[in-house]
Computed example of a mutant assay.
Amino acid sequence: MTIDDATTDGERWLVIDGRRWRRTDPALPDDVQAALRSHLGRGRGAVRAAKAAKDPRAEAAARRRVDLAKHGLGERGPRWWDEPEDDRIARANAAIRELDALG
């Protein structure tokens, strides 16, 4: 099942400096998006700190946090427009639970 065929490439992709980035799944509730973006920001900060400290283990853990958040937002992994909305929201909530468990 795919999301409405009226969804355009402009609604699916964001182009910055000629590079195409997948947009966040628009079906995700605002609170879910906010929680995932919070985790994403913390993950990105942890990547910077780990790189500065030259700590490859911490960097890998931080990159995992970023990856989980990006998957939850629909910006990585299966294309959100190709999946049922309920599955996408369930994946986002599962990502939040996993990220919350990481601390």
Rank of each mutant, 00 (worst) to 15 (best):
Q33D: 12
G10T: 11
L99Q: 08
I3G: 01
N93L: 14
L36D: 00
P78E: 05
A52Y: 11
E59C: 10
V47F: 04
A90C: 11
A95R: 08
V66W: 13
T24M: 08
R63H: 06
D30F: 10
I16V: 13
I96H: 05
P78G: 13
V32P: 03
A35S: 07
D5C: 14
R44H: 11
P78L: 05
A52P: 01
V66E: 08
D25W: 00
G45T: 05
I3A: 06
A61V: 02
L14R: 08
M1S: 15
V66F: 08
P84F: 05
A27I: 03
G41M: 06
I3V: 07
W13I: 10
A6S: 08
W21K: 04
G74W: 00
D55K: 03
G41P: 07
A34T: 08
D17V: 15
V15S: 03
D4I: 06
K54M: 03
W13V: 15
A61F: 12
G41I: 05
R48E: 09
P26V: 09
P29Y: 01
D86K: 10
R48Y: 15
D9W: 04
D9H: 14
A34C: 04
L102D: 09
N93E: 14
I96V: 10
I96N: 09
E11S: 06
R48T: 03
A92C: 02
R48A: 13
P29T: 07
D67L: 15
R20Q: 13
R48H: 05
A90I: 10
W13H: 03
L68F: 09
R20Y: 05
D31L: 13
K54Y: 10
L36F: 07
D82H: 00
L73C: 04
P56M: 04
R12C: 00
R37D: 06
R37W: 03
V15R: 02
A52G: 06
E11L: 02
K51L: 04
L28F: 07
A101K: 07
R64C: 13
E98S: 14
A58K: 07
R97G: 15
A53G: 15
T2D: 06
R57N: 15
E83N: 15
S38F: 15
N93S: 12
V66Q: 07
L28H: 02
A94H: 04
G18T: 08
L68A: 07
V47L: 13
D87V: 11
R37I: 12
A92W: 02
D4M: 06
A27L: 05
L73P: 03
D9I: 09
W81Q: 00
R64K: 15
R65L: 14
V32L: 11
A58F: 11
A94V: 11
R88T: 00
E98G: 09
I89D: 02
L99I: 05
G45V: 12
R79S: 00
D100E: 09
L99K: 04
D67F: 14
L102Y: 09
G41A: 14
D30H: 11
L68I: 03
H71P: 10
G103C: 07
R20N: 11
D4H: 08
A101W: 04
W80Q: 00
V32C: 15
A95Y: 08
H71I: 08
R65P: 04
D87L: 13
R19D: 10
P84L: 06
A61K: 10
